[in-house]
């Protein structure tokens, strides 16, 4: 990991109703990052508002360009949405532990809910370069929030039925898992969705990795601010032990942190 000061924005474009992709050029980071890892961005260098950095999954890496995907949710992301190519950011990364790609698996299923699509572009690109069969199951609230993706999509669901099948993405999962051999699941999305995906996979004895979200301060495992409860009752920090975990390591009965 490294801190990169004064990083020039390459682009900041709207991709759906509330979501944007922002890209910047950091050759060192682009080269060393793995899918599932994140960058910690200081949104207003030189100002104390917002104070803390914000963690963003790396959505994709194209050459030496790093791309993140974000949704305008609060004052921090509102500010980010107004940033233009002449502005600079302070970026730390790559941070955390990403997806552990098991080369022996025949089928790699990516399951994303809403903004959980964020780390999947990079993961899909990596799986493609490794020539591993992969597909995406993608659920969103409605077609206006659907975020375009380069990955081969096997099914889409939406809460309002405006695109794909009406309902939750998790309702598509059991059938999909039945139809494939020796699969592994990588999931990212809201806590209730991850909990359902983890349960379905655990019942079928299918390995499942989840990417978790949490409020973070340091991003490097020093402050212990971003912890979640693990299945053995201890607390584990999302920033350095995760954000990607084996789903069996997490206690799914706790309240969601974010």
């Amino acid at each position: 990991m490294k801190q990169y000061h004064s990083i020039q924005i390459a682009s900041n474009a709207r991709v759906s109703d509330k979501a944007y992709t922002l890209s910047f050029k950091i050759p060192g980071l682009a080269k060393s990052a793995d899918p599932g890892q994140f960058v910690h961005i200081r949104l207003s260098p030189g100002s104390n508002h917002p104070l803390l950095r914000r963690p963003f999954s790396i959505n994709d890496i194209r050459g030496d360009k790093v791309e993140i995907l974000y949704e305008v949710k609060g004052s921090g992301t509102e500010l980010l949405s107004q940033i233009s190519p002449k502005d600079t950011l302070d970026v730390i990364g790559p941070l955390g532990k990403g997806f552990d790609i098991d080369l022996r698996k025949r089928y790699h299923l990516l399951v994303a809910g809403g903004m959980g699509i964020a780390p999947m572009g990079f993961l899909g690109r990596r799986l493609k370069s490794l020539k591993l069969k992969h597909e995406l199951l993608y659920g969103c609230r409605s077609s206006s929030e659907l975020i375009p993706s380069d990955i081969k999509i096997c099914s889409i669901s939406s809460d309002d039925g405006s695109c794909g099948k009406k309902g939750l993405v998790t309702s598509l999962l059991p059938d999909k898992l039945e139809s494939c051999q020796n699969p592994v699941v990588y999931a990212c999305g809201p806590w209730p969705m991850l909990k359902a995906v983890a349960r379905i996979c655990q019942n079928k004895n299918i390995p499942c990795q989840v990417s978790l979200e949490s409020f973070m301060a340091c991003g490097v495992g020093a402050c212990q601010g971003c912890v979640v409860r693990s299945s053995d009752g201890s607390y584990i920090s999302v920033c350095d032990k995760g954000p990607v975990f084996d789903s069996r390591l997490i206690d799914w009965d706790q309240d969601c942190v974010v």
């Binding site: 803390l52 409020f215 973070m216 212990q224 601010g225 912890v227 409860r229 009752g233 607390y235 942190v257």
Partner: peptide
């Protein structure tokens, strides 16, 4: 083990 999460929260300039 420390306290139950969430453990941190941003506030105005703090």
């Amino acid at each position: 083990p420390g306290n139950r999460p969430p453990r941190i929260c941003e506030t105005a300039s703090g």
